[in-house]
């Protein structure tokens, strides 16, 4: 069944302790190529049948009203899974 992917990230200006912790650990395991890490959330909304514009609109609304906390997070993308 097709899925709609909603990606949520902490707002750029908001402190992201998770990303900070991971960024500090990467060099410890020998990965030096990255200047920063930010950690977000991915949601998969399963649709029965075809994904319609209405589904996408609902997914956007879900993203704004439930999946993200608009005070500290942004919905950065709403897309249909390729598979």
């Amino acid at each position: 069944m097709p899925r709609i992917i909603v990606d949520v990230m902490p707002k750029p200006e908001i402190l992201d302790p998770q990303g900070k912790a991971i960024a500090r650990e990467l060099p410890q395991i020998g990965i030096d190529g990255f200047a920063g890490v930010r950690q977000g959330k991915r949601f998969e909304l399963t649709v029965e049948g075809e994904v319609t514009e209405a589904h996408l609109a609902e997914a956007r609304r879900a993203g704004q009203e439930l999946l993200s906390n608009p005070v500290i997070e942004d919905v950065v993308s709403v897309s249909v899974a390729e598979d």
Partner: peptide, 15 residues
């Protein structure tokens, strides 16, 4: 530049 700065402080208890 971002017009509105966050009014919300985020805590990092580990720090």
């Amino acid at each position: 530049k971002p017009s509105k700065r966050p009014a919300v402080q985020v805590g990092d208890p580990f720090a």
